[in-house]
Design a protein around this nucleic acid. Sequence first.
DNA 1: GTCTATACACCGATAGAC
DNA 2: GTCTATCGGTGTATAGAC
Lengths: 201, 201
Amino acid sequence: MLGEPIRDRLAERREATRREIVDAAWELARDKGLADWTLRDVARRVGMQAPSLYSHFASKNAIFDAMFGQAWLEYESVELQSWQGLPAAPRKRVLATAMMFFDFAAADLARYQLMNQRSVPGFEPSPESFAPSVRVVERAADDLASLGITDRGDVEILFALIGGLVDQQHANDPGGHSRRALLARAIGMWSDGVGLAAEES
Amino acid sequence: MLGEPIRDRLAERREATRREIVDAAWELARDKGLADWTLRDVARRVGMQAPSLYSHFASKNAIFDAMFGQAWLEYESVELQSWQGLPAAPRKRVLATAMMFFDFAAADLARYQLMNQRSVPGFEPSPESFAPSVRVVERAADDLASLGITDRGDVEILFALIGGLVDQQHANDPGGHSRRALLARAIGMWSDGVGLAAEES
DNA sequence: GTCTATACACCGATAGAC
DNA sequence: GTCTATCGGTGTATAGAC
């Protein structure tokens, strides 16, 4: 019997092609709008005919699904990378986490629309692509719980605040970061409201 | 010379037909998704052939434009109707206004997506259709100013809070009103943060 | 003037040859 | 795995009947 090859060159090649397709779709999404591109656009960009894409993705929505999963994995990676460096003082810690999300969300409109708004008609993420986003939310809730914020309502108010300011950033000052200062002020109000301590206990 | 007729029956008929078309589009939007309907769908519902719609609207986006303007006019009407009955006490007044908007926004996902999110690819409202939404925002800002809230940042934090909770309502409990209680708590935090008085001064 | 009939260019998707 | 050919459906456009 033949043993498993060290590297599966075929699978590597397949994965690289899928990556090329997804990257091309991201470029188009940023350029023309999240969903304002066609399979023929993507195909041209990767040097294929449109139907050939179906050897790698079952549908246009399957490409969106890969984009969705990738975006949340990317944020999860940013988050885990910054985890150690976060302040321990509760108020500063919440603000730093919120700003991390805000910066990521404000940096790319198309990505934010795909990740956080249901703005592609007919598209719903698969459970596998959805998993990273669930982990991110759970990790945030756990961290807040460790700071004494156990009321689910307080957590959701915080999320609403951040999401609302990201929306405003994109709607009223796209590409800018004017709402970053407001976020600090708003998080301050929230911290007061939920009685979050300034110093580590 | 012929005088102006008392009623322009032709114009009335035209306006009624436009209304029929827009109403049919709303029904389809609520049923299948904001943009997940075709001109042929609308035409079938009003008993026309699809191309006949072009006698009344220049494009599908023109129908969206009429829907956009109508939705904001409708909210403005709700607002003006409730204006007299609003509490004079600052905190209660802000909460009542916020809840009015929240209820309107939470009641109809498709309408909210059209009014407050840019979720139809390629559609931007015309200045005429946009006007009512500008008036609503200005009226809210003026009313807040009369309560002593003059900092634009504080106003935007308030708007972000309301919008964020409406988003959450639609995303996590569509058709429900679970975030209504959170809105009250959140507005309380905000009122504390901006130093809003409880009683009329 | 309003609607019907017809057509166009383009879309996502599929079938089958190589 | 990629190609060519093609499908049904879409928004849009226009010619012409009434």
